[in-house]
Amino acid sequence: MYLPHLVEQLFIGISTGAIYAIVAIGFNLVFGTMNVLNLAHGATMMLGSYGLLLAYYLGLDNFWLAAVAGIGLAIITGLTIERVAVRPLRGHWWNTKVATLGVGLFLENLVALITAGFPKNVPRPFNPTYHELFAGIEISDVQVMLILISISVMLGMVAFLRRTPAGKAIRVLAQSPDLARSVGINVDRVTLIGFGVSGMLAGVAGILNAMTYGSTYPFVGVTLGLKGIVVLIVAGIGNMRGCLYVGLALGIAETMAIGLGGSHYRDLIAYLSMVLILLVRPHGLFGEEGRVEREV
């Protein structure tokens, strides 16, 4: 174990953590604002990566266009989830949880049925080449791209929530659905938009994850989705910036643990630290009190 190795692990950790953060922000958007824990979020991520593959299969031979197609599929999935499993059950937090779980089961096994369940290779926009920064520390251009895309997605989300009318409406909805209704916000429409944006984030996360590992499989969203929930809970529900910090911290902690030789305990880090943090701060590190209790 020498220092350059650890610094390289740090870069990997940042790019992994950025994906966790995007997943958590996708969860946050629908949970923090509409009090719906969308357990089909992982399946939406998976569909994003398979949408990219489908575009290739249908003869589209450009990575970026195929990625747009994948994200489009994820957005459609998000909208469909809202119409099928959330809108008919509005107000029942436990029921929407179960119903979205059903949607996730259905989608994942549908894809597994169609593709025979094997992992599939995902093409990359270019083959990774490694550049030496200094003192023997190498970073691949795919990692640089991942980090850049993640940062721009975060900035885009912040701009969306702060500047656009739809984003502002979502923030009002997060404060109080009744207030939103009374100032003339169409709650149904804003909820739909929220699910669409969340689906888009899921698609981006799914494609970034597929790019990192060079492959995807029907149940890829299960572990990734669980990590996203962990980040959401630790950060505190309703806090976007907290998701970013905690996601990065979790990614770095995990890859550092692997780098230091503790790969057996990789998943334990996330879950155990979450339990400990919840015991000390029951509303997460950045969360505010009385958020979930409103509905639960």
Partner: peptide, 8 residues
């Protein structure tokens, strides 16, 4: 898959 549909 059938489970999923039934739950919804």
């Amino acid at each position: 898959m059938f489970y999923g549909l039934t739950i919804i």
